[in-house]
Computed example of a mutant assay.
Amino acid sequence: MSERQNPEAAIKDPDEWVTGDEPTTAAQESYLGTLAREAGEEIPDGLTKAEAAKKIEELQERTGRGGTSR
């Protein structure tokens, strides 16, 4: 099955991202803020893209917003 037929096959671990050490994107920051408010949690400043992606996944599971799990 190709990646087009199985979109989950295209999902890379954030630790393997070439740009994972770059600062978070505006979209990540916005979504993290929403999830953090729902979870009653503070998000530390200075997260990288990879760290933000992991935190998003964690908070999605805690808040029930996660679409699919890996």
Rank of each mutant, 00 (worst) to 15 (best):
Arg62Gln: 14
Met1Ser: 14
Arg37Glu: 13
Ala27Gln: 13
Gly20Thr: 01
Glu38Tyr: 09
Leu59Phe: 11
Glu61Ala: 12
Gln28Asn: 06
Arg65Glu: 14
Glu22Trp: 07
Ala52Lys: 05
Ala50Asn: 07
Glu3Cys: 03
Thr48Ser: 15
Thr68Tyr: 05
Pro7Leu: 08
Lys55Arg: 15
Lys49Thr: 07
Ser30Leu: 09
Ser69Trp: 13
Glu57Met: 12
Gln5Arg: 06
Glu16Pro: 00
Thr24Pro: 00
Thr63Ser: 14
Pro14Trp: 01
Pro44Thr: 02
Asp15Asn: 10
Ala27Tyr: 05
Glu8Ser: 12
Val18Thr: 09
Pro14Asn: 04
Leu35Arg: 07
Asn6Ala: 12
Ser30Asp: 10
Gly40Phe: 04
Ala39Ile: 09
Gly20Asp: 01
Thr24Lys: 08
Gly33Glu: 08
Arg37Gln: 13
Trp17Thr: 00
Gln28Ser: 04
Arg70Ile: 05
Gly67Val: 15
Leu35Ala: 13
Glu61Gln: 11
Asp15Glu: 07
Met1Ala: 14
Ala36Glu: 05
Ile56Phe: 04
Thr34Pro: 02
Glu3Asp: 06
Ala53Val: 05
Leu47His: 05
Glu8Ala: 12
Asp15Gln: 07
Met1Pro: 15
Arg37Ser: 14
Ala53Thr: 11
Lys54Glu: 09
Lys49Phe: 12
Lys49Pro: 06
Asp13Gln: 04
Gly40Cys: 01
Lys49Tyr: 13
Gln28Gly: 03
Glu51His: 08
Thr25Ser: 07
Gln5Asp: 07
Gln60Ile: 11
Asp45Gly: 04
Gln5Gly: 05
Leu47Lys: 08
Pro44Gln: 10
Asp45Pro: 02
Glu38Met: 10
Glu42Val: 15
Gly46Cys: 01
Ala36Cys: 07
Ser30Arg: 14
Ala52His: 05
Ala9Thr: 00
Glu8Thr: 10
Ser69Asn: 12
Ala36Ser: 07
Pro44Ile: 00
Val18Gly: 04
Ala39Asp: 13
Lys55Glu: 14
Pro7Asn: 07
Ala52Tyr: 03
Leu32His: 10
Gln5Val: 00
Ala52Thr: 03
Ile56Gly: 03
Leu59His: 08
Glu38Leu: 12
Asp45Cys: 00
Arg65Phe: 09
Glu3Phe: 08
Ala52Leu: 04
Pro7Lys: 03
Ala39Met: 11
Met1Asn: 10
Glu38Val: 07
Ser2Leu: 14
Lys12Trp: 04
Arg70Asn: 09
Glu29Arg: 11
